[in-house]
Write a protein that binds this DNA or RNA. Structure first.
Length: 454
RNA sequence: GUGGUUGUAGCUCAGUUGGUUAGAGCGCCUGAUUGUGGUUCAGGAGGUCGUCGGUUCGAGACCGAUCUUCCACCCCA
């Protein structure tokens, strides 16, 4: 077989020991909080039936799905006429599976398939990779991890309040403060669209509105007029976006424009729950222009944006009233959030917020001069590990310099040296790699010494 | 998916209008130091110039395709 330069598929990455340790740190932080709030972990396959995935994320989303070709002779279900009719006709004949695009839709499938075993309300969390055939950029990968927590089987807005608190706990634990948590209600967007004379065009309205902070007011107004918005009414809508002040006041303001509705009622109730938490330090910004893309959201929606790093949204979520409906289970409402592990990593890295020395290394390295000393070392390894000390031995009797160099590179704080003299005395040289000091100690004293320093 | 951008040693990068044998710093290896790393000194290894094709007497440089990187759309974690 001809040799070739190895390479990775576009938008995928390897993670070395240091990166993996940092990723684990974020995952553990999020996971601990999920557990603290009463969520239970589940996992679903990397691949789903294409029929489960397609049509759930809009036309754009379908385009971004990674399809898996059928196994074996993948052309056997198709003929040349399928090929001539184009890719849309050919696709279902050669591909029946796809890589999952997010964790919410597979979760909805899970709920429907396991509805008889699940006790509602069901609180689950899930930390797994997802795949999107997007053009990669900074903070945008084709394979990335989502950390989701959802509650299904309850309409209570207490859940929204809980998730809000959870978001703050996670970022507090990670030591990141440069974020803003924005919220809105899908129903308010719908009402605003109708008010502006865009009944039936609510979704295009959302897409345009969502770009407000990016392209500016004038461009948004221009685009909305182009799809048929009423100029005067639109001015009221745009003005409502720039309302300043307390979130509860903003709700009152918007009610003056579009009247009381499900959105304003729910937001009022939600803010009331937050108040009852007794914590006043939550930074939440009600932003009527926040739209969020995923088409299945119907109630309150969340988005966490990094303000001091150019990376966009690092956490998103919201309520979906009827997600399981498409799989035949009606009337099951859910609300959830999704933390973007890879983007959070990029933020913590850029802001220098990772704790020092996350990489796991041994506490002590055993070095030796020859085969006999090495064998002797195996017994010591066992004793060290039994005492809870992370210990490893250099596996070859090479020059001391090389063995010490290894300890230095791996930042192992202690080196234990075994020579014939040491074996005779039953004491070993223990060198502290940080200050360079060294003394002869029995294995018991060595264990004490290292344990004290840990 | 549309438009642009990037690729030279393990890493960060030089490389003149196309012209002999493609360089530097850091890292790596060896020795000074045959029982000791991180400092110092001396020496050494390492490159199909992303890949394939084309133009040319001659290509790292020019042209085309392709892969990859980053960016703007689109969309999103």
């Amino acid at each position: 077989m001809a040799t070739s330069k190895p390479s990775l598929p576009k938008g995928t990455r390897d993670f070395g020991p240091e990166q993996s340790a940092k990723r684990s740190y974020i995952i553990e932080t999020i996971k601990n909080n999920f557990i603290k709030y009463g969520f239970s972990q589940i996992e679903t396959p990397a691949m789903e039936q294409l029929s489960v995935l397609t049509g759930k994320y809009g036309d754009e989303g379908d385009q971004l799905l990674f399809k898996i070709m059928n196994s074996g002779d993948y052309l056997k279900k198709s003929d040349s006429t399928d090929f001539e009719k184009g890719s849309a006709h050919l696709l279902p004949k050669i591909s029946e599976k796809g890589l999952k695009y997010d964790l919410t839709v597979p979760f909805a499938r899970f709920v429907v398939m396991n509805q008889n075993d699940i006790t509602f309300p069901f609180k689950r969390f899930q930390i797994q990779p997802v795949w999107r055939a997007d053009r990669p950029q900074k903070g945008r990968y084709r394979e990335f991890y989502q950390c989701d927590a959802d509650i299904v089987g309850t309409d209570s807005l207490v859940n929204e309040a809980e998730l809000t608190q959870l978001i703050h706990d996670v970022y507090n634990d990670l030591g990141y403060k440069g974020f803003v948590l924005k919220i809105n209600h899908r129903e308010i967007l719908m009402e605003l669209a109708r008010y502006a004379g865009l009944a039936g065009k609510e979704m295009p309205f959302c897409v345009i509105i969502d770009k407000l902070d990016k392209v500016g007011q004038e461009k948004v107004i221009e685009e909305l007029l182009a799809i048929g918005a009423n100029q005067e009414k639109l001015a009221d809508v745009i003005n409502s976006f720039s309302t300043e002040g307390e979130n509860t006041l903003k709700v009152e303001m918007i009610e003056k424009v579009i009247g009381s509705n499900r959105g304003t009622k729910e937001l009022t109730e939600y803010f009331d729950f937050l108040q009852s938490y007794g914590t006043e330090n939550l930074q939440i910004e009600l932003d009527f222009s926040l739209a969020r893309g995923l088409s299945y959201y119907t109630g309150i929606i969340f988005e966490v944006k990094a303000t001091d790093v150019q990376i966009g949204s690092i956490t998103g979520g919201g309520r979906y009233d009827n997600l399981t409906g498409v799989f035949g289970l009606q009337g099951t409402s859910g609300v959830g959030i999704s933390f973007g592990l890879d983007r959070i990593y990029d933020v913590l890295e850029e802001k220098g917020l990772f704790p020092p020395s996350l990489t796991q290394s041994s506490d002590v390295l055993i070095t030796h001069f020859d085969e006999e000393c090495m064998k002797h070392g195996l017994g010591l390894l066992k004793q060290l590990r039994a005492a809870g000390i992370r210990a490893e031995m250099f596996p070859e009797s090479v020059k001391m310099k090389k063995q010490f160099n290894y300890a230095d590179k791996k930042e192992i704080p202690y080196v234990l040296v075994i020579g014939s003299e040491e074996i005779k005395r039953g004491e070993y040289s223990l060198k502290n790699m940080k200050d360079g000091s060294q003394e002869m100690l029995s294995i018991e004293r060595i264990i004490e010494s290292i344990t004290d320093q840990k």
